[in-house]
């Protein structure tokens, strides 16, 4: 279970990334944030953002058409 959950279901680009970035900024190093999104673009956007920002993407999975990403604050 992640320390923070960001529910971005129903929101479109760029809002999932915006909300994720705000949650990561608010987290302490080592804490995890789980993003839940229904925007298919998140599947490419979130890994790209996490890699560029240097925050490890620990897990990525899909449940019933919802995309989950667990990211650790570097």
């Amino acid at each position: 279970m992640a320390d923070t959950v960001v529910d971005a279901r129903g929101l479109q680009c760029p809002m999932p990334i915006i909300k994720l970035s705000q949650a990561i900024m608010a987290a302490s190093p080592g804490q995890t944030v789980e993003l839940i999104s229904t925007d298919k673009g998140s599947c490419t956007d979130v890994p790209a953002w996490a890699a560029d920002m240097g925050h490890p993407l620990k897990e990525q999975f899909e449940v019933d058409g919802e995309f989950h990403f667990i990211i650790e604050r570097a």
Partner: peptide, 8 residues
């Protein structure tokens, strides 16, 4: 612009 800001 907002996404760029999200990239820091």
């Amino acid at each position: 612009a907002t996404t760029g800001a999200a990239y820091g």
